[in-house]
Design a protein around this nucleic acid. Structure first.
Length: 467
RNA sequence: GGCGGGAUAGCCAAGUGGUAAGGCCGGGGUCUGCAAAACCCCUAUCCGCGGGUUCGAUUCCCGCUCCCGCCUCCA
């Protein structure tokens, strides 16, 4: 089966065909964070989904060229740095660094480029000048520049909005006095006192770029005028991505994006995550509560991206932990049986499950279907291991298949270094057990526990795990 | 009001015009000096409600109810 995605623009499942004539390169642009705070798990749901997308495309042989922007100038970043009395760049650096650390925690593969908006202001100005020359951008009384949406016939197509029927929402009610039309959006925001020293010179006076133009400028600068895939959260569909299309296509005259993918929101305990509801979590909050990055990754990635994800601390995360433990144990047994054997031929039933894993992902990243195949494979190999039907070469073959699947999932256990002291104690305990000296054995177990390790005597010998 | 998504076992969730994957929890068993773990097995006559089409619908059509999101700068 060919890879197919549900495209937001057409609202249909579309077979994925890259722009690259060789069918190899995939140009992927993913909307990144605004670095004014630590990112929350809702943000990371989107980034984890994009990671799954990239990794699966790579597993299918594509060369994915991905760009993720960092919005390091906007109302919130300006407010943040002024509140602290520090320079904007210093303020945002804290959160850029934190963001990258968080990506690592969640095992999210780095994009090729993470352009920061403040590094592309010149290019944004060029695009706005172009739009102004074409009569699409205009400067209003407040000196800001706006995009005249009446000049872009397709405006609203992505969101499937009929702009004539837009019902003004409360929060925009009182700042529409300068614009020609309510729907016109800012390309350039004229400086005002609240901006402090955050300002760039432009043909229209000092100011700073609007949010939407940043993605248009950076995406085209780094990936070209046409992209294969552009992702974001559903809340970006309108107006952000709509605006990106309007600006970019007005400048380039080409179709900006082939496929639009948007992930649904994350909810916490059945409700919208919000600070006031007390269910707002950054990644760091969960790490502090004792959850690991891969457990959170599991909880975020195993629900299809188009479905709202109900994130629960007392159900979802423990379930993630238990499921990962099962995978760990299976991988451990496989490795033990395979030892250093060369992979043999994988049994046909097992090969079918592995194929099923990837073909499920081909179908709009059907992760639930894929996980079903993986757990079937786990059960089947455990059975074969129990009955002795799987030899070293067979186990090595399954192990190789797991490595392929894991290159997409990245669920493998963290390597833990066991201190020599603990290893020594364990050997002593084994000797005591062989001599049936149970009191000594239990005493050593307690000593090992005091060092932070738990001993469990499995059928295959004692196992150590960090407490 | 407009647009969009959803409703499948205690929880998460896949899926098909032919009679329900998988995970977690729970129950049983194997193993075991003890403890713990691990592994195996079992666990929805039923897929929001009411109609219709059909030999047959959870899956197609119509209507309804409920939930969630977006409607101008929140992933």
């Amino acid at each position: 089966m060919a890879v197919q995605f549900f495209d937001t623009y057409t609202r249909k499942l579309e077979t994925f065909v890259p722009l690259d004539p060789a069918g190899k390169i995939v140009k992927l642009y993913t909307c990144g964070p605004t670095v004014y705070n630590y990112a929350h798990i809702g943000n990371f749901r989107a980034y984890v989904f994009e990671d799954l997308l990239q990794r699966h495309l790579e597993a299918r042989g594509y060369d994915v060229q991905r760009v993720m922007n960092l919005t390091d100038v906007d109302d919130k970043t300006i407010r943040g740095c002024r509140n602290l009395g520090v320079r904007l760049a210093d303020f945002t650096k804290t959160f850029k660094d934190a963001f990258f650390a968080d990506l690592d925690t969640l095992r999210i593969k780095r994009a090729q480029a993470f352009p920061a908006a403040t590094d592309y202001v010149e290019r944004m100005i060029e695009m706005i000048r172009d739009l102004e020359a074409k009569g699409i951008a205009y400067q209003a009384e407040d000196k800001s520049l706006y995009f005249r949406i009446s000049k872009f016939a397709d405006y609203g197509k992505l969101a499937h909005l009929n702009l004539d029927e837009l019902r003004p929402s409360g929060r925009i009610a009182n700042d529409e006095y300068e614009k020609e039309s309510v729907g016109d959006f800012a390309l350039w925001k004229a400086w005002d006192e609240a901006d402090g020293d955050v300002r760039w010179d432009s043909p229209w006076g000092p100011g700073r770029p609007g949010w939407h133009i940043e993605c248009s400028a950076m995406a085209t600068a780094l990936l070209g005028d046409e992209l294969d895939i552009h992702c974001g959260g559903v809340d970006n569909i309108f107006p952000h991505h709509e605006a990106e299309i309007a600006q970019t296509e007005s400048c380039t005259g080409k179709k900006f994006v082939r496929t639009w993918l948007h992930c649904a929101h994350l909810m916490v305990d059945g409700g919208k995550m919000s600070k006031s509801a007390g269910n707002f979590f950054t990644l760091r909050d969960l790490i502090e509560k004792g959850w690991t990055g891969r457990e959170i990754r599991y909880a975020l990635i195993t629900v299809n991206y188009r479905l709202p994800l109900n994130f629960t601390l007392d159900e979802g995360l423990p379930a993630a932990r238990a499921a990962l433990g099962r995978i760990d144990e299976w991988a451990r047994r496989l490795a033990e049986t395979a030892a250093s054997a060369q992979p043999g031929t994988i049994a046909p039933e097992m090969a079918a499950l592995v194929e099923g894993f990837f073909t499920a992902l081909d179908d709009d990243l059907n992760i639930s279907g894929a996980m079903g195949q993986l757990f079937d494979l786990i059960r089947d190999t455990n059975r074969a291991l129990d009955s002795g039907a799987l030899d070293a070469a067979g186990a090595a073959a399954v192990q190789a298949a797991w490595q392929r699947m894991n290159s997409v999932l990245r669920f493998e256990a963290d390597a833990v270094a066991i201190p020599a002291e603990v290893t020594e104690l364990l050997a002593q305990r084994q000797a005591a057990r062989a001599a049936k000296n149970w009191s000594e054995s239990d005493r050593i177990r307690d000593a090992i526990a005091a060092l932070g390790w738990v001993v469990k005597d499995s059928k295959d010998g004692p196992k150590l795990s960090p407490k």
